[in-house]
Write a protein that binds this DNA or RNA. Sequence first.
DNA 1: GCATAATGCATTGCTATGCAAGGTAAATTT
DNA 2: AAATTTACCTTGCATAGCAATGCATTATGC
Lengths: 120, 120
Amino acid sequence: MLYNALMELTNPLIQIKKGALEFCVLALIARGESYGYEIVKVLDEEGLTTPEGTVYPLLARLQKEALVTSSWRQMGEGNPRKYYQITRKGEAALALFREHWKEFVNTVDLILEGGTQNDG
Amino acid sequence: MLYNALMELTNPLIQIKKGALEFCVLALIARGESYGYEIVKVLDEEGLTTPEGTVYPLLARLQKEALVTSSWRQMGEGNPRKYYQITRKGEAALALFREHWKEFVNTVDLILEGGTQNDG
DNA sequence: GCATAATGCATTGCTATGCAAGGTAAATTT
DNA sequence: AAATTTACCTTGCATAGCAATGCATTATGC
């Protein structure tokens, strides 16, 4: 059997448990195209401090999964930047994640609270 | 420097990103002592399906970190069970996590919503 | 009586993630 | 000229999740 690859697509919880950060970055790109160095800073401002050594490989992964595209661009005089744009597939994946995220938070909340009489 | 060990204690976000499940299991034990096989089932019922191959090593980790203690016990005629009890340290860690969890969910929610006009 | 499932524990080996550390190059500041 | 900032990236390590597998005991089914 081909667990690894299939499970990734089948069980959203695996994605959630592993890749909350992945979709946070995707969500940032969804706001409008952005580049690695900026994303690192915005994540920090938003309270989700993450080093470059995590973000850059993550961006490469997103692109490999075709959730984003990228294009080098030279803005003014600074260093060239690799801008990332979200794709249709990326938007779909993000939308799906938002739903799974809500469910996941709900589930964890219930477990954390003790869930004695808490229903629905 | 001793990054690994220290960072684990210093930066709660690392724990959260990696170990949401860890604290879910701890929370289940906090409800009342439990054992691996039961925890696997309860996690499934609660919507957080997780295989034994994940749970048993996790329990060993919790004990190694002194967040739980364990004691073998024979209930009736069945197989002996390794019951886990939460410790003071475990309760403290759980309480801390509950706070970090709220913050984390808040942060992720803001990033996911895009912060355009949606204010909770 | 014998096979299958369920209960209950655990480990091995693989894949992937997070990340500190380090490296490159250009522009800006001091 | 040196240091900082902007901007990219890779290497190597520790660890998490988990399928697969194994062991032992107790039902359940035939």
